[in-house]
Amino acid sequence: MVLPEPVRIERLARLDAQIARCRRCPRLVSWREQVAREKRASYAEEEYWGRGVPAFGSATPSVLIVGLAPAAHGANRTGRMFTGDRSGDWLYASLHRVGLASQPTSTRRGDGLALHGTRITAAVHCAPPDNKPTTEEKRTCGTWLDRELALVAPTVRTVVALGSIGWDAVLGAVREAGWEVPRPKPRFGHGAEAVLGGPHGEVLLLGSYHPSQQNTFTGRLTEPMLDDVLGRAAARMQP
């Protein structure tokens, strides 16, 4: 049974609030709070979020973007996914170029940014030390993605996985939900795609290299490469 849209929207809001309060992973909780106390010198006057970072964007998305985890001085500081660091600068600029964001920058909550038919979430919702969550932390946090996917499934037509961890998190969540997944397991790569059999029709899974500084500084990921993947997602949006 498909829940009425107002009910799904209300449950997503409740889910976001639960993610912000989550304390299931002691190592991640300790690290996010330590960073929020000690701060980076350039942000010393700011109040850090220092909690689990919920998803951002539409509650009825056609496009779902799944990243890795909040950055210690990015989303862990601002409280919004991919906001306050160079990875976010790349992502939101690209989303704006392909028509999925109202502006090319995301600096803080309340800055006027809106996403068009798009929702951004992550495999892990707390900033991990060295950007490396453990297998157990990924498994524990994966239950949030399971619940989020169930609520947005009626409208989602494309899922974009940023990086191999995001790719694996999506495949794990859709399998848990009973979706049809190609065999053998679809392999991650930039521009990779797989057709998933969801409860409300086919969903296209697209892979993109993560817009991390390591990838963007070295040229492994370029603006045209990211625009290509996100543009493919935008082209599949329902009219």
Rank of each mutant, 00 (worst) to 15 (best):
G163Y: 09
A150M: 09
R21V: 01
V195H: 13
P133N: 03
A194E: 08
V63H: 11
H200T: 05
E202K: 07
L230C: 09
T135H: 11
D228Y: 03
S62K: 02
L3V: 09
A234S: 02
R80W: 07
G110M: 12
R232L: 03
R21A: 15
P211G: 06
G189S: 15
R8S: 12
A177G: 12
A122Y: 04
T140P: 00
Y43L: 15
Y43I: 02
L204Y: 04
A177V: 00
S94A: 14
L206R: 12
G178N: 10
G52Q: 07
E176Y: 08
T105Y: 13
A101C: 11
C22H: 14
L196G: 07
G231N: 05
E38S: 07
V181F: 04
G166R: 13
S87V: 03
P184I: 04
K138V: 14
R97M: 04
T134C: 11
Y48A: 09
S164E: 14
P128G: 06
E47I: 14
A234M: 01
T83K: 03
K132P: 00
K132E: 14
A17D: 14
E223I: 12
S42D: 11
S102D: 05
F188I: 14
A169F: 03
T107Y: 01
D168W: 05
L196N: 08
A177N: 01
G219H: 07
T134S: 15
R232T: 13
L115K: 06
N131Y: 12
H125N: 12
S58W: 03
T118K: 05
H210S: 06
L64F: 10
R24T: 08
G189C: 07
T78R: 10
R139C: 04
A44M: 04
S164D: 14
T83M: 02
A93T: 14
E38T: 14
L162S: 05
R108W: 01
L205Y: 08
N76K: 05
V63E: 08
V53N: 02
F82I: 00
E180V: 13
P4A: 13
G57P: 05
L221V: 11
A194R: 10
Q34E: 11
L115Y: 13
H73Y: 15
G112L: 06
T134F: 01
R236C: 09
G142C: 00
T83F: 02
T216W: 04
D85Y: 04
P133Q: 03
T134Q: 06
T155R: 13
F217E: 12
S62M: 00
R8E: 11
Y92P: 01
S94E: 01
